[in-house]
Design a protein around this nucleic acid. Structure first.
Length: 301
DNA sequence: AACCTCGGCAACCGCCGACCA
DNA sequence: CTGGTCGGCGGTTGCCGAGGT
């Protein structure tokens, strides 16, 4: 509509589409480990990937990013999604910003596949059990949701209908107390000490585990070289633990047992800044943030 | 055992706003 | 102010595995 002759994000001719291969993942990881992702459009070329920038960005954000929390959603998270969706509508990125480690895509999928149905069935149940007198409370709660639901689909009032602020207060405590589940051990590191071993060192090890294929070109640096480059690449991600995690995720056993530190500072800083901006304009985030900001280990909520 | 159906999830597509020259 | 580029978002698609027949 409002397009101004925008060029396609990439020349799609000759580019890979569909699922990402392990090699592509490793290329992307190795590149971002070393250079960060200044320019998504240029990244694939520089990283030697036959993908468009958007595809790289999506892959990184939704799957390869070190601070991704994988695994099943907890009950608290599900409840949070339901409540936030009630307040915000289909603002998946905003909802995601309140759920540390979850991506908008993941939440969106979760909503579309599970929560929507669950909510519908709950609604049906509650309609069957509750009497019309309840309509009073539902109209009061909708005052809060209405302010946020004028974008996207306007949902009918679900059951619950408690004061959202009360809900978030309780939820916040739960999420703060137990943000790290069994699948989150690796990110439960309190101190993000910059370890000496860069992914550049891990990557070759990792690659060697893979069958066949010449991945030597992926190896950006090794040993002391890596340490020097680490210094240069200040502020950029230097984590390697998530590479191990990836190994596990991808079913490659033999992950290193070392418990290297994680440098997520820049990511956390960005998230915190984002949150502060949201706080100014978004009462929901503001509320949510208020309760969490002092103690949230992620700094993003 | 083979086929079919369905659900879940990763990835793609198109649009929009911010930013910059 | 205009036009171009880029990153980001939300909706949608399509693949793949699980379960059912």
């Amino acid at each position: 509509m409002g397009r101004r002759g925008r060029a396609p994000c990439c020349d799609k001719v000759g580019l890979n589409k569909g699922s990402w291969s392990l090699e592509e993942d490793m290329r992307l990881i190795a590149y971002i480990e070393k250079h960060g992702h200044g320019n998504w459009r240029a990244l694939p070329k520089l990283a030697g990937l036959l993908r468009c920038g958007k595809s790289c960005r999506l892959r990184w954000i939704n799957y390869l990013r070190p601070d991704i929390k994988r695994g099943n959603f907890t009950k608290e998270e599900e409840d949070a999604i339901i409540e936030l969706h009630r307040l915000l509508g289909n603002k998946w990125s905003k909802i995601a910003s309140c759920l540390p480690g979850r991506t908008d895509n993941e939440i969106k999928n979760m909503w579309n596949t599970h929560l929507k149905k669950r909510l519908a069935s709950r609604e049906r149940k509650s309609l069957a059990t509750q009497k019309p007198e309840d309509s009073q409370s539902s109209s009061s709660s909708s005052a809060a949701s209405r302010s946020c639901s004028d974008h996207g689909e306007s949902k009918s009032d679900e059951e619950g209908n408690q004061d959202p602020s009360l809900y978030f207060t309780d939820l916040s405590v739960e999420m703060i107390e137990a943000p790290i589940g069994p699948d989150m051990d690796m990110w439960g590191v309190a101190e993000y000490d910059t370890h000496q071993e860069e992914a550049a060192v891990i990557v070759p090890e990792f690659l060697s585990m893979m069958e066949g294929g010449d991945y030597s070109s992926l190896i950006v640096s090794t040993g002391e070289e890596a340490m020097e480059e680490e210094e240069e690449a200040k502020g950029e991600g230097k984590s390697s633990e998530w590479v191990e995690y990836l190994e596990k995720e991808l079913g490659l056993s033999g992950a290193s047992e070392e418990n290297d530190g994680i440098n997520q500072e820049s990511l956390m800083r960005d998230a915190a800044e984002q949150q502060m901006e949201m706080e100014e304009e978004d009462p929901v985030s503001s509320y949510f943030h208020k309760d969490l900001v002092s103690t949230c280990p992620f700094g993003s909520c």
